[in-house]
Simulated assay, not measured.
Amino acid sequence: MSETIRRVAIVGTGGIATAHAQAVATQPDRARLVAAVDVDLGRAEAFAKTWDVPAAYPSLAALLAAGDVDLVLLCTPPGSHVPLAAECLAAGVDVLVEKPPTLSLNELDELLELESRSTARVICVFQHRFGSGAVRLRRLAADGLLGRPLVATCHTLWYRDDAYFAVPWRGTFEIEGGGPTMGHGIHQFDLLLSILGPWEQVTAVAARQARPTQTEDVSLALVTFANGAVASIVNSLVSARETSTLRFDYEHASVELEHLYGYTDADWTVTPAPGQEAVADAWSADAADIPSGHSAQFAAVLDAKDAGRTAPVSLADARDTMELIAAIYASAFTGKPVRRGELDAANPFSVRMDGTGAPWAT
């Protein structure tokens, strides 16, 4: 049991806030919800009543002025993440930011600069990294039991109807930052990157196939990695049979994951190559079965803070994922491959994910 009970506030009490409240509730001896914040104070008060939270505020500034919080869980629309996270950093309060952490690569670098001048830290919500299946896969890969990674697939095939985009901030580069590449498939390919490591080059296409949106509703990318692996990434909002799948083909085994919005150990399949049965034995020897999700990441954040370590996923860790997103848009909209590190601060696709403009915008 931790000796410190951390005081936690949720800012933005829309749908995703419930997942965060549930995550805090799983750690009653380590964290306590002390405040709910929303520009609609009535909604914040209703949320506070539901979750037995003692205080509600109409703004982050009012919460920070009260000074009774150790960690802010930022659950507002993407366009507000940077200014609100900056307020937390200025106040010396750690902030856990929902995806995507920023609207652009330059905004992320701006937050990194602000973070470097603060005692507080920005933590990014990438909860799929923390299920026991992903933890196990990273460990077996690091131990060399799987051999070299050769090829991977990462598909987020979801369905969102026209009504979904009636919410004013959805489907825009200005407020949401992008389509399924930015806001939906991001968790899947962040998990891909956490397993395969740094990417080197991407070649991509994007299309607006069916939905009333300024952004793409489909993207496809071919990615090469520093360790020699190659992968395909598909993000879709027009797929009637929804599924989220990852497949990693190593020298000694294929490891597959199929789920929708979160996984358990039962969603993973391991197929050893001939003569490599030890892989299956090592996988099944681990009895842990921790589902992916906000609760798993929140527990990992508390573990890190208790141990005096940087809490996962750090803003610096998230940069690789955000750079891949920018590179996918840059490649898709210019028709050219993009290498890691190519998008400097002056590049239009570092400034905005749509860079020089989506082809369909004209």
Rank of each mutant, 00 (worst) to 15 (best):
T4R: 15
I5G: 04
R6G: 01
R7L: 03
A17Q: 07
Q27T: 15
A31E: 08
A36T: 10
V37R: 03
D38Q: 09
G42T: 12
A48N: 01
K49N: 11
V53F: 02
A56T: 05
G67T: 12
V69N: 05
D70M: 11
L74R: 05
P77M: 10
V82K: 14
L89K: 05
A91N: 07
G92Q: 10
V97Y: 09
E98I: 09
T102G: 09
L105T: 11
E115S: 04
R117D: 06
V122R: 02
V125M: 11
F126T: 01
R136P: 01
L137G: 02
R138H: 01
A141N: 02
A141M: 09
D143F: 00
G144T: 09
L146K: 07
L146H: 07
V151S: 11
D162T: 13
P168C: 07
D190N: 13
L193H: 05
I195H: 00
I195K: 01
L196V: 11
L196W: 05
P198L: 12
A204D: 03
A204R: 05
A204S: 14
A204F: 04
R211M: 13
E216Q: 14
L220Q: 08
L220I: 10
A226G: 01
N227F: 06
V230K: 13
A231R: 03
I233G: 01
S236H: 02
L237K: 00
E242Q: 15
R247W: 00
D249I: 05
Y250I: 00
S254P: 00
V255H: 04
Y261G: 04
W268V: 11
A285M: 03
Q297S: 05
F298G: 01
A299T: 14
V301N: 03
L302Y: 03
A304E: 08
G308Q: 10
A311I: 08
D320F: 00
D320S: 15
M322D: 12
E323N: 06
L324Q: 09
F333E: 04
G335W: 10
G335F: 11
V338F: 06
G341D: 10
D344W: 02
A346S: 15
S350M: 03
S350T: 09
V351N: 08
D354C: 13
A358N: 02
W360A: 06
A361Q: 14
A361N: 04
